[in-house]
Structures are given as structure tokens and as C-alpha cells.
Lab assay of single mutants.
Amino acid sequence: GQVHVGDTTYHFPNPEEARKFAEKAAKENNLQVTQHGNTFKVE
């Protein structure tokens, strides 16, 4: 799974890890998570 936060892309071998990371980043920054397959975008 990939997580895009601003201009930075994080790669995770496990989509579940990617999702947890995205949700945590979104919560900390008052942002939203959008999911496209195994790619998550925090914005």
C-alpha cells in the first residue's frame, strides 16, 4: 500500500499498515483520508 501525504509518498508492504498510518496522519493533522484501491491519500 502507498500513502500520499502532501508531496511525500510512504510505501508499506501491507495495505492494512498503510491504512492505519493514513488514518493516524489524518487525525493528527485534521485532514481526510481518501482510498483508491491500496493507495491512500491524506489531504
Results as ranks from 00 to 15, higher is better:
8 T>V: 14
33 V>F: 09
41 K>Q: 11
19 R>L: 08
14 N>V: 04
7 D>L: 10
22 A>P: 01
33 V>E: 01
28 E>Y: 09
29 N>A: 13
26 A>V: 02
24 K>T: 10
36 H>N: 12
38 N>E: 05
41 K>A: 09
41 K>T: 15
43 E>L: 10
20 K>A: 13
40 F>K: 04
29 N>H: 14
19 R>A: 07
1 G>A: 15
25 A>K: 13
7 D>Y: 10
20 K>D: 10
40 F>S: 05
26 A>S: 05
34 T>P: 00
33 V>S: 02
25 A>T: 14
11 H>V: 09
34 T>F: 12
38 N>V: 04
1 G>E: 02
42 V>T: 03
19 R>C: 11
22 A>L: 02
28 E>A: 13
8 T>L: 14
6 G>A: 06
10 Y>R: 04
28 E>R: 11
13 P>E: 13
29 N>C: 15
38 N>A: 04
42 V>Q: 00
43 E>R: 05
12 F>M: 02
29 N>V: 07
18 A>T: 01
19 R>P: 01
19 R>M: 07
16 E>W: 07
40 F>M: 05
35 Q>I: 07
24 K>S: 10
26 A>F: 02
8 T>G: 04
27 K>L: 12
18 A>H: 00
3 V>N: 00
27 K>W: 09
14 N>I: 04
38 N>L: 04
29 N>S: 11
35 Q>D: 03
37 G>S: 02
4 H>Y: 11
23 E>P: 00
3 V>T: 02
13 P>F: 08
14 N>T: 14
28 E>K: 12
14 N>E: 06
38 N>S: 06
19 R>F: 07
2 Q>K: 13
21 F>L: 01
9 T>G: 02
36 H>I: 14
42 V>R: 00
1 G>L: 05
5 V>H: 07
17 E>Y: 05
6 G>E: 05
5 V>M: 13
16 E>N: 07
34 T>A: 06
17 E>K: 05
14 N>K: 03
43 E>I: 11
23 E>M: 09
29 N>Y: 14
31 L>T: 08
4 H>I: 15
25 A>W: 15
37 G>Y: 04
6 G>Q: 05
15 P>L: 15
12 F>Q: 03
5 V>G: 02
21 F>E: 02
34 T>I: 12
43 E>Y: 10
38 N>C: 09
6 G>K: 06
28 E>S: 10
10 Y>K: 03
7 D>W: 09
1 G>N: 07
5 V>I: 15
12 F>R: 00
22 A>H: 00
7 D>E: 11
39 T>G: 07
41 K>E: 14
40 F>Q: 04
42 V>H: 03
28 E>M: 12
32 Q>G: 07
22 A>D: 02
41 K>N: 12
9 T>E: 07
29 N>L: 15
20 K>S: 10
30 N>Y: 06
18 A>V: 00
25 A>G: 02
38 N>I: 04
11 H>P: 04
12 F>Y: 02
34 T>H: 12
32 Q>S: 12
41 K>L: 15
8 T>Q: 14
5 V>R: 03
34 T>Q: 06
11 H>W: 14
20 K>V: 11
6 G>Y: 09
6 G>C: 13
12 F>S: 01
33 V>P: 02
28 E>P: 06
32 Q>L: 11
30 N>M: 07
29 N>D: 06
25 A>I: 15
33 V>I: 10
15 P>N: 08
8 T>R: 15
34 T>R: 08
31 L>Y: 08
4 H>F: 12
18 A>M: 00
3 V>R: 00
29 N>G: 13
28 E>W: 10
32 Q>T: 14
4 H>K: 13
